[in-house]
Design a protein around this nucleic acid. Structure first.
Length: 181
DNA sequence: GGTGCGATTGCA
DNA sequence: GCAATCGCACCA
């Protein structure tokens, strides 16, 4: 069952936590569908969150974050890696969830946001793409119980001061595709 | 119009 | 430990 619009129109922290265990689905141009369960994600809040791209307001790059939840926000980092985000909440809130790691049914895992987008063939052409459309969507998968969810500080945002220490990273405890910490 | 750097990764 | 590599945020 596909996750529908209401799933995305909630607090970004709730969406992030609930995305664990869900199945990321990507239909390639040729028709093949790739699938993988999410095991590591990070919540980026809107105004106020110094680690978030939306912290300094609307720009050409982060514009999708300001849209209503239910679409993708894809950007290029370090000039070579794409990062895939799920936009959440209502229009103007500018929140999103960064997808950092997934595991495929066959056991093949993509650990790290750059490796995840490479594994699922996601690039800027999917920026603003609907998550209720034919190319990229999420399915119910197998929700993770609270006892198996661990919260930590987000990765790679040391520049954000106190915000870098907020526990906004959600991971499946002891999962091999997730680094310690 | 010029400049500095990043929500990372892979290799020495 | 560090280079790769470029879109874009920010300043002039």
């Amino acid at each position: 069952m596909r996750l529908e619009k209401p799933f995305y129109l909630r607090d970004v922290r709730d969406v992030a936590r609930d995305l664990l265990g869900r199945e990321l689905c990507r239909r390639l141009p040729g028709g093949v569908v790739l699938r993988g369960r999410l095991v590591e994600v990070e919540a980026y809040l809107g105004a106020g969150d110094r680690a978030s791209h939306s912290f300094r307001g609307l720009t050409p790059r982060n514009a999708p974050m300001f849209e209503e939840g239910g679409i993708a926000y894809v950007y290029l980092v370090y000039g070579m890696h794409h990062c895939l985000n799920v936009v959440t909440s209502s229009r103007g809130d500018a929140c999103a969830v960064l997808l950092r790691a997934a595991e495929s049914p066959n056991g093949v895992s993509a650990s790290g946001p750059g490796r995840l987008t490479r594994a699922f063939s996601v690039d800027r052409s999917l920026d603003r793409a609907s998550l209720l459309g034919p190319d990229l969507w999420l399915e119910e998968g197998e929700p993770i119980p609270d006892s198996a969810v661990r919260r930590t500080a987000r990765i790679g945002v040391d520049y954000a001061g106190a915000w870098s220490r907020r526990k906004l990273r959600f991971v499946v405890a002891r999962h091999p595709a997730v680094s310690a910490r």
